[in-house]
């Protein structure tokens, strides 16, 4: 049965971005900008692994790959099925990408009852100072060279221009490159991303199953019920965001960094309030609610407008 070619979509995380088949989703994620790990799974198995860390020491890309493959072949012991390794594969062909990187391509394949294989590459980027290791995994008999090559050729490890793409679980946003991810939370039906930019704080919340949250209320009513306590001035018609009418407002929000866990009753340890700009909309096509909150030294609804305009919600 020909199921047709899968759609390819962008994933962006800590300035690393790449295209992937739509049915692969994030299975594991950890770390920060300097060191981290990301894994994509399909419904059966892990499909893509990405590791990154600050380049340290004098070890070359070639030596790091050799160490990884040596560990891989030696890990199983004597009884483990043998691992066949091929080195120096030219998996990345884009000359502009190769200009500032030393790329080492490789392929490994295991034998045995459930054979596995992977196409991967490792490079050291001179611009962002990170060592990136990526490998596309598959079953032994699978033809995956084309897919692996396409994915690895779209893999980029730093922001091009002033903005960086953040894209996870169907949510995509373009943010200034100096925004640092401070906190993330991936729960079923609820995704939260919190960014820091200097003293400013930007929060993005996406809630699935919007109809269940709204409970026969209109979106503006729900928004006012949920965020009304911290908003003084409402902007009922804040324009269209992703084709959906949005609602917003400005007010005073509690700065979470100033919330003390201990001795919070002391007057000088009370939480500090900061000017807050807020924007929310209901994506009917995706049955989701989106909320953007921006805490800064002054109200900046125009910045929020700019950010909201980059969100791809459906």
């Amino acid at each position: 049965m020909n199921r047709g070619a899968p759609k390819w979509v962008v994933t962006g995380w800590h300035h690393l971005s790449f295209e992937r088949p739509e049915d692969w989703s994030i299975g594991a994620v950890s770390g920060d900008f300097s060191t981290g790990y990301l894994r994509l799974d399909d419904s059966e198995m892990p499909r893509f692994e990405l590791r990154w860390e600050r380049t340290r020491g004098r070890e070359s890309a070639d030596q790091v790959v050799a160490r990884y493959l040596r560990n891989l072949t030696g890990k199983g012991g004597k009884k483990a099925p043998p691992v066949k390794v091929r080195r120096d594969l030219a998996l990345i062909k884009d000359e502009t990408v190769l200009a500032d990187r030393t790329v080492e391509g490789f392929h490994w394949r295991t034998e045995g009852p459930e054979p596995l294989q992977a196409y991967g590459c490792l490079w050291m980027c001179e611009i962002c100072g990170r060592t990136v290791f990526a490998q596309v995994l598959g079953r032994g008999g699978e033809s995956m060279m084309t897919r692996a090559s396409r994915l690895l050729n779209t893999l980029d490890d730093h922001a091009r221009g002033d903005t960086a793409t953040w894209a996870v679980y169907g949510l995509r946003i373009e943010l200034p490159a100096d925004c640092v991810l401070k906190h993330h939370s991936f729960m079923t039906g609820r995704i939260e991303l919190t960014f820091q930019r200097g003293s400013a704080r930007l929060e993005l919340l996406r809630m699935s199953l919007a109809e269940m949250h709204l409970e026969d209320r209109t979106f503006p009513d729900w928004f006012q019920d949920t965020y009304g306590s911290e908003i003084d001035t409402w902007i009922d018609d804040a324009g269209l965001t992703g084709g959906h009418p949005s609602i917003g407002g400005t007010g005073q929000g509690v700065d979470p960094d100033s919330v003390h866990a201990r001795m919070a009753w002391l007057p000088w340890r009370r939480p500090r309030k900061k000017p807050l700009s807020c924007r929310g909309w209901h994506c009917i096509d995706g049955n989701r609610i989106y909320v953007l909150r921006h805490l800064d030294e002054s109200h900046r609804p125009e910045f929020l407008d700019e950010i909201a305009g980059t969100v791809v919600c459906h």
Partner: peptide, 9 residues
């Protein structure tokens, strides 16, 4: 319910 595969799973 228009969920992502992982969310639904």
């Amino acid at each position: 319910y228009k969920l992502e595969r992982k969310e639904a799973e």
